[in-house]
């Protein structure tokens, strides 16, 4: 057998420094790639959900509820058809709904059921990059959902109320939807990452966080319609803030500048804070 020539320690050190360069820079994207590839396993539910949900909701509300509520809704200095009022909120809800799936069970699977995060962590990636990749992967799925929603909203309004929606700015609701999903999802991801066992907590989040938020965040009626003692649900809900912003860009609802700043700031604080917290949770757990 040919004798093996081993490199010197200095050569090995230099080699490691060279190999580490790319993962340090692009590691988060590598994890994103993995998460997106893994989604193909349930790709048809993503596509069917992304296309089917807006069709069902918009059609159902257009031919059903909107026909019943024939009176225009006064909102921020404008009067808009009911369907136009709810559409931006439905778009944000769709993103949040994706977030409630992608930031819970896959996180638990990564740490506990399948433990693939530990596999990622043994490679050149850092735990912070793993957290980033999970966020970006979920954001990719949210993007598909909100783009589909926005496209259907455009089609519906061109068909039913031509000229009612402002398409020059309504595309911004795609960005708003994404941020809404992350504002709800990132703190949820930190929570999911900290859970040692699934004892039905995610089902509770669906029932007692997502559902009340959906019902009491000014989704189907202006928040001011609610008695004051219930309005706080909307104030703390990323859905209300996102819906209001969505209405501004979709049909030009007038909002006080200070309130506009509150909506944007609140969503960004939840997103950034949630991501920072999730990265900490991931780092602590993966180093055990």
């Amino acid at each position: 057998m040919k004798p093996i020539t081993q490199p010197t320690l200095a050569e090995l050190t230099a080699e490691a420094m060279e190999w580490g360069r790319k993962p340090r820079r692009r590691g988060s994207w590598y994890v994103t790639e993995h998460m997106v590839r893994a989604m193909r396993a349930y790709g048809w539910t993503i596509v069917v959900g992304a296309l089917g949900q807006p069709i069902l909701y918009l059609l159902g509300l257009a031919v059903g509820l909107a026909a019943l509520i024939a009176v225009p809704i006064p909102d921020g200095g404008r009067e808009v058809p009911y369907l136009l009022f709810v559409a931006p909120a439905l778009l944000a809800t769709a993103a949040i709904s994706v977030a409630s799936e992608e930031f819970t069970y896959p996180v638990m699977a990564g740490f506990k059921w399948r433990q693939y995060f530990y596999g990622f962590n043994a490679s050149a990636l850092s735990s912070g990059q793993i957290a980033n990749g999970v966020v970006l992967g979920a954001a990719a799925r949210m993007l598909v959902t909100v783009v589909a929603y926005w496209a259907f909203i455009c089609i519906f309004f061109e068909w039913l109320y031509p000229g009612a929606a402002n398409f020059a700015t309504s595309w911004i609701s795609i960005v708003i939807g994404l941020v809404a999903g992350l504002a709800f999802g990132a703190p949820l991801m930190a929570y999911a990452g900290a859970l040692e066992e699934d004892k039905g907590q995610f089902a509770l989040v669906q029932r007692f966080v997502f559902m009340p938020m959906f019902l009491f965040s000014g989704t189907f009626y202006p928040l001011a319609t609610l008695p004051l003692w219930l309005q706080w649900i909307g104030w703390i809900s990323p859905l209300w803030h996102a819906s209001e912003l969505g209405r501004v860009v979709t049909y030009g609802k007038t909002v006080e500048p200070w309130l506009l700043a509150v909506h944007v700031t609140y969503l960004l604080v939840l997103t950034v804070g949630g991501v920072i917290l999730a990265r900490r949770v991931f780092t602590r757990r993966l180093a055990k």
Binding site: L9, L12, A16, M17, G27, R114, Y116, G119, S123, A124
Partner: peptide
């Protein structure tokens, strides 16, 4: 490999192969 893992984790791990006790394939 001549590096401190506290500072050069990604660089060290880029030259390691790891077979954990419990399979963590996807």
């Amino acid at each position: 490999l001549g590096l401190d893992p506290d500072q050069y984790g990604p660089e060290i791990r880029s030259r390691l192969g790891v077979v954990p006790q419990q399979d963590n394939l996807d």
